[in-house]
C-alpha cells in the first residue's frame, strides 16, 4: 500500500501540472489562504450549528432551521477545502500523502463528516427530532461537543503536516 502511494507520489511530482505549481511562487500561499478562508467559513457554520444543538446560542430559532441555513455553508466550504487541498497535494505529493499528520487528518475528517450527516439527516424528515425527549437532547449535545472537538483536531492535524517529517 505504502509502496503504491510512493509510486503515485513520484509520478504526480513529475507531471507538468505539479511542476508548474512548484515553480510559480505565489500559487501555494494563495491556495492556502483560500483553504484558510474556507476553514473559517466551515468553523463558523459548524460552531453556530453545534452551539444551537447544545441549546447555548440562538435558542429562539428551531434546530432544523439553523441546520437548513448553515449546512449548505459547510458543504460549499468542504468542496473548496477538497479542491484547494488537492492543489496542495499535486504541488507536493510526498509531503502530504505519506505524512502521518495528513493521514490522521483524513481519518478524523471522515469521522466528523459522517457524524455531521448523522445529526442533520434526521431533521429532514422530522424537524423536532433532537428535541423529542431529554435523552435525544443529551445525545444531540454530546454529538455537538464531539463534532466541535473533531473539527479542532482536524485543524491541528492540518497545521502539523508542515512539521511532521516524512520518512
Amino acid at each position: 500500500m505504502r509502496h503504491a502511494v510512493s509510486v503515485f507520489c513520484a509520478w504526480l511530482e513529475r507531471t507538468p501540472l505539479s511542476h508548474q505549481l512548484q515553480t510559480i511562487e505565489w500559487v501555494i500561499p494563495a491556495v492556502q489562504t483560500l483553504h484558510l478562508l474556507a476553514i473559517a467559513a466551515l468553523m463558523g457554520a459548524t460552531l453556530v450549528l453545534n452551539l444551537r444543538l447544545l441549546g447555548v446560542a440562538s435558542a429562539d430559532v428551531p434546530v432544523a432551521r439553523v441546520s437548513r441555513r448553515f449546512l449548505p455553508v459547510v458543504k460549499v466550504s468542504l468542496a473548496v477545502l477538497l479542491a484547494t487541498g488537492a492543489v496542495m497535494i499535486a504541488a507536493e505529493p510526498e509531503r502530504s500523502l505519506l505524512n502521518l499528520a495528513f493521514q490522521v487528518k483524513m481519518a478524523l475528517l471522515t469521522g466528523v463528516v459522517l457524524l455531521t450527516a448523522a445529526t442533520t439527516r434526521p431533521l429532514r424528515r422530522r424537524p423536532e427530532f433532537w428535541g423529542d425527549s431529554p435523552a435525544r437532547r443529551r445525545l444531540a449535545g454530546a454529538s455537538a461537543v464531539l463534532s466541535s472537538g473533531l473539527w479542532v483536531a482536524v485543524l491541528c492535524a492540518g497545521r502539523w503536516i508542515a512539521y511532521v517529517r516524512v520518512q
Partner: peptide, 25 residues
C-alpha cells in the same frame, strides 16, 4: 522546543478562523 511553536500556531489558526468565520456572518 520542537512542538511548542506548532501547537501555539494551531491555537492561532483556530482562533483566527473563528474570528473570521463569526465576523463574516
Amino acid at each position: 522546543n520542537d512542538s511548542a511553536f506548532p501547537w501555539v500556531e494551531c491555537l492561532h489558526v483556530l482562533a483566527i478562523t473563528l474570528v473570521v468565520g463569526s465576523i463574516s456572518v
